[in-house]
Amino acid sequence: MTAITVDRLHKTYLVPEREGGLRAAVGALVRRRRREVHAVTDVGFTIEPGEVVGFLGPNGAGKTTTLKMLSGLLHPTSGTATVLGHVPWERDRRYLGQMALIMGQRNQLQWDIPVLDSYKLNQAVFRIPDADFKARVEELSELLALEELLRKPVRNLSLGERMKCEIAGSLLHAPQVLFLDEPTIGLDVAMQRRIRSFVAEYNRRTGACVMLTSHYMADVEALCRRVIVIHHGRLLFDGALEELVHRFAGDKTINVELADEHPLDPAALGPLVDGHAVERSATGFSVRVPKAETPRVAARLLAGLPVSDLVIEEPPIESVIEQVFEATSAEVDGG
């Protein structure tokens, strides 16, 4: 059985709209204008139990709206979805009891009481037996190094510490589906890495299905073999991460290191790289060329220069994604 099935999901918000200025403000008293905003349009996918899927898109693409529908916070305008056999927005307690939505910018723990007290409250809410609760708190605090934090009030924790505690608190009931919305936002690199490896470990141990949105591609690369990309509320791509790069990356980067103090003559280099822009480095240069031309340009460079090292790289995933979004924005704006 699939864990998540989404079919032609659609969410339209009705937002009030008016021009700036006093005149428009007075006008709005008489006649209110509303505009339809299509936050999610015709999105569909399925996710198997145990999968970790990256959900990508720029700000306002519809990621969070989709996650909120799947966690039962929002009703869709049309379309269907089932998660663990439940329709999320019916908000059946049996569903809520085995699902978790963790939002990086929201505080779910109680601000003024020690973390452990908040956890005990969650134990009561999710009806977790004492033995399970004790074992899970121990395990989660070991995985996330929480021991020192459990007795401190939440307000005294740093952002990173709080996020770790939030995540552990949301997993005490061992959810089978986990929606993570920007779980590493605002955290330093070490803490991001810790959260990332924890999510991978949690998925390995429990077989829970994870859907993750993040602006940090490192999160996605480390955790997700599969990505779903949406933009302007529409699904752009659903497949393996490498395939996304393969399909959308038009260029490759050739990094060249030169053997010795070779006086690099830009005029001579131009024809070798078909006139593409060259970026100089201390010991050589790099150049981005269209994928199809890469072998020819590389061969020419090797033949024409005293090369000590030459590496051909796929572009960073960030820039691929950026290209995808730019291309589709241009399409939308143009037509």
């Binding site: 074992a135 997993l171 141990r205 429990t206």
Partner: peptide, 8 residues
């Protein structure tokens, strides 16, 4: 390390 607690 206990490897049981977070299992389903």
């Amino acid at each position: 390390m206990a490897d049981v607690a977070t299992r389903p």
